[in-house]
């Protein structure tokens, strides 16, 4: 019998955990695809998803303690939300703007993840405004003597926003337990990375804020997990922030309203699809004897069954009471 830790390169993850990681990645991919499909069927007015980002998202979130650590996501982070415990049902209820959506009850656009219980803070659409919130949460964590870590996500476009600079600087000055994760998919809608920054690796910026920065292969889930686990340990031990740049590729248009053929070739997308995170991790599981092809098929079938059931549930769920649009402008006091 092979001991789990003997699987080379598994980063200490057990066989079950490695399979769970694959499950979450496949679930994230498939929820995104389902949302795009429902959009094309005219059922959801809008879809913004993150196919291709699964390793960056699941790899980082898997290093967090759900419900204890805080996640400040952006609109591609389906994999973060699902790894921390939101369900396909939660996301599809949000996609269809149903009353019982825990994200927003139909108020916010889909993929603006939120769960008070899971400490996934409700997000907005202006890019990178969530990054200072992570810093404030980490500040409170430090002032209150808690060992909670805040992890915030943004893209390569978001990395250009002033809030990110301000937030990183603040976090460095106060040595806060916060992790900045940049999912660098090399395009901010249509603007390529070369027009976004004059450096190849955005992580070098961390040096200017006085904390470590690392660039990882964002399509290698175990490499991402390894970097994230180290960053979480640093933060939890009071050693301050880390900037993780996960280099990846968005396999789909920016949103359901985007046509990415205007700015990148089909050949380029196809090349990246071949080295996508699910293809790679699936092959790794087989090569290392963690799961057979059939077992991977079973994991995928389980995910699809969950998504099918969630779709059915969400489609049947009621829309919000129109008059409820007037509520919750302010806290309703007892």
């Amino acid at each position: 019998m092979v001991s789990v830790s003997d699987v080379p390169g598994a980063q200490g993850l057990s066989r079950d955990q490695l399979r769970e990681v694959y499950f979450k990645m496949f679930l994230a991919r498939s929820v995104g695809e389902r949302e795009r499909m429902l959009n094309r069927m005219g059922k959801g007015p809008f879809a913004v998803t993150g196919e291709g980002h699964e390793a960056a998202q699941v790899g980082t979130a898997y290093a967090m303690t759900p419900g204890k650590d805080w996640a400040l996501t952006y609109y591609r982070d389906i994999g973060v939300a699902l790894t921390l415990g939101m369900t396909p049902r939660d996301l599809l209820l949000a996609h269809l703007a149903r009353a019982e959506s825990i994200e927003s009850g139909g108020r916010n656009m889909p993929s603006h993840f939120s769960s008070v219980d899971l400490r996934i803070v409700s997000g907005s659409a202006p890019v990178a405004t969530q990054v200072p919130h992570a810093v404030g949460i980490a500040l409170a964590s430090k002032l209150r003597g808690l060992d909670e870590v805040a992890v915030t996500y943004f893209g390569d476009g978001g990395a250009s926003v002033g809030d990110v600079h301000e937030a990183m600087n603040f976090a460095g000055v106060h040595s806060l337990p916060v992790i900045f994760v940049c999912e660098n998919n090399q395009y901010a809608i249509s603007v390529p990375a070369s027009k976004q920054a004059a450096v190849t690796d955005l992580s070098v910026r961390a040096q200017g804020y006085g904390f470590p920065g690392v660039t990882v292969d964002g399509n290698d889930v175990l490499a991402v997990y390894s970097a994230a686990r180290e960053a979480v340990e640093r933060a939890r031990n009071g050693d301050g922030p880390t900037f993780i740049e996960a280099k990846t590729y968005r396999l789909v248009p920016h949103t359901s309203d985007d046509d990415d053929s205007r700015y990148r070739s089909r050949e380029e997308v196809e090349e990246w699809r071949k080295k996508g995170p699910l293809v790679r991790f699936g092959a790794w599981l087989e090569e290392n004897g963690v799961a057979t092809k059939d077992e991977i098929g079973e994991i995928e079938a389980k995910a699809m069954a969950e998504i099918d059931a969630a779709t059915e549930y969400a489609e049947a769920a009621p829309t919000p009471d129109p008059a409820s649009a007037m509520r919750h402008v302010f806290v309703e006091e007892e």
Binding site: I137, L139, S141
Partner: peptide
Amino acid sequence: TPLAEATIVGASIGASLNGL
């Protein structure tokens, strides 16, 4: 704080979410 108004308010928002 550092001289950065957006983050003075942004960090305040975050701190308020975490009990302060």
